[in-house]
Design a protein around this nucleic acid. Structure first.
Lengths: 188, 188
DNA sequence: TTTTATTTGGGACATTTGTCCCACGCCCTG
DNA sequence: CAGGGCGTGGGACAAATGTCCCAAATAAAA
């Protein structure tokens, strides 16, 4: 449920340690509840999560919000916007303390061009995300109850995931009421 | 609704014209209804659509199937499997005559490594797909009726899209009955 | 042309999900 | 301590969606 990418973090860690990235990378820390990107706003940086968790949300009419994904260690934020040169497609908000490496978009694109290993890692990261996003979307339409249950079992992580029932419901794309029903009297 | 990518097609066309790809690329033609990939099966090639349309579907229990996307000119098939070295994540079937360039996975990865422009184009293709997949997933959860209507209006393309009502319903993630209700007596 | 299958459209009812509303428990602050 | 805000849990009813089934229209096959 929480996506991670140890490989990317390792690459960045090494590059930073070697001093190869010079001034283009700096560490930044965010407290819980802080907003890194606002859907529709332009962006100027790319972040690599060193530790902590963020949630990416999408909203259409400001009322309800849909949670696209939870991202943890090694995950990259803002890379899509850097690559496509488009405004932020989703809002990204921390749901725990967050430690990151921050890099401006130009440096990111540069690194992508010059560092073959990094390039391959980002390609794979995006491919994996695409698969996850697509299968989740499909499962949500195909399974309904079963998937909910399966997912809620998978929520062993739930205890580690500092999120509210409302957020879980947003993730499942249902209302809080419905979630409660599923959690409560399983039998009709 | 039907995704396309003129840029990629142009790049491949040029490479083929220049003869830079040698034997690694060949043209292949498929008739309507043919299956290029089967979900879960291993793959060995990557395809570039020259003309025609395919639908990518995902199924969980073989009963219902969810349509992930319709792909047209310039779109790439099998690139995710090549990059991640995983089995096909979805089934891909032609819904019209299809003309393609076919390339084995190794050559594809090679081209990705050697050709900066191609690399950038694929990166952007995947980023765009990710955005589309994610926003569609989100909208499907957030909008319900409105989105359906909006989408069905967008189905001006409907006439060009040789698909059945059942396929439209699969795309929307609803049953055929529900689709008919939405199309028919709009008012309760 | 007749027959058979596919596609389409819709009625009737069960099930699911959403909406509205209320209540309890917890934390925090005045 | 009292009151406000928030997260949680659930009852009751409305609305949406699925399931089952049937019928007309269209396309494909005999």
């Amino acid at each position: 449920m929480i996506r991670k990418s140890p490989l990317i973090l390792r690459i960045i860690d090494e590059l930073v340690a070697d001093g190869q990235l010079g001034q283009s990378v700096l560490q930044r820390h965010f407290s819980k509840g802080h907003s890194l990107f606002a859907q529709g706003a332009s962006t100027s940086n790319v972040y690599f999560i060193r530790s902590g968790i963020v949630k990416c949300t999408f909203t259409e009419d400001q009322e309800k919000e849909y949670i696209l994904e939870f991202l943890g260690e090694g995950e990259v934020l803002g890379e899509i916007e850097a690559i496509c040169k488009t405004p932020a497609m989703s809002t990204v908000r921390t749901i725990s303390e967050l430690s990151t490496y921050m890099m401006d978009k130009t440096s990111f694109l540069d690194l992508l061009r010059r560092h073959a290993g990094f390039n391959a890692a980002i390609l794979e990261l995006m491919a994996v995300r695409l698969v996850n996003t697509a299968t989740r979307s499909a499962r949500q339409q195909l399974n309904t109850l079963e998937h909910n249950l399966a997912n809620l079992l998978e929520v062993l992580e739930y205890e580690r995931l500092p999120c509210t029932k409302q957020e879980l419901a947003d993730y499942l794309g249902i209302t809080l009421r419905s979630l409660n029903r599923l959690l409560g009297g399983r039998v009709v």
